[in-house]
Computed example of a mutant assay.
Amino acid sequence: MLCTGNAFADGIKVIANGAQPSVTGSSDYFSGAVVVDPLMAPAGDYSGVTGANVMFAPGARSAWHTHPRGQTLIVTSGTGWIQEWGKDKHVIKPGDVIQIVPGVKHWHGATSTQSMRHIAIQELLDGKNVEWLEQVSDAQYAK
Rank of each mutant, 00 (worst) to 15 (best):
G78A: 09
V130R: 07
K87V: 08
Q135E: 07
S47H: 09
V91G: 02
Q20T: 03
S31A: 13
S115P: 07
V36L: 09
Y46T: 08
H118Q: 10
K143T: 11
H67E: 13
V97R: 06
P42F: 01
T113Y: 04
Q20V: 06
E123N: 10
G11V: 00
N53T: 01
A57G: 04
V91K: 13
I119T: 08
Y46H: 14
G18F: 02
W64F: 02
A139C: 01
G59W: 06
A110N: 07
K143D: 13
G18V: 03
I82V: 14
Y141F: 15
F56Y: 14
I119K: 06
T4S: 12
G5T: 05
V136I: 01
I121Q: 10
S112M: 05
T111W: 02
W132V: 00
A41V: 00
I12C: 12
N6I: 09
S112N: 08
S77V: 04
K13H: 08
A139D: 14
G95C: 11
N17V: 14
Q99L: 12
H90F: 10
D45H: 05
V54P: 10
T4N: 09
E134T: 04
Q140V: 05
Y29R: 12
A139T: 11
S27V: 11
D37S: 12
K89M: 10
A9S: 13
I12G: 05
V23I: 15
A120P: 00
Y141E: 10
A19C: 06
Y141A: 15
L125G: 08
A41T: 07
G44Q: 03
F30H: 08
G70I: 07
K13L: 12
W132F: 00
S26A: 11
I100D: 07
G95E: 13
D28R: 09
D88F: 05
E134R: 04
V23E: 15
L124H: 10
V54M: 12
A16S: 15
G44K: 02
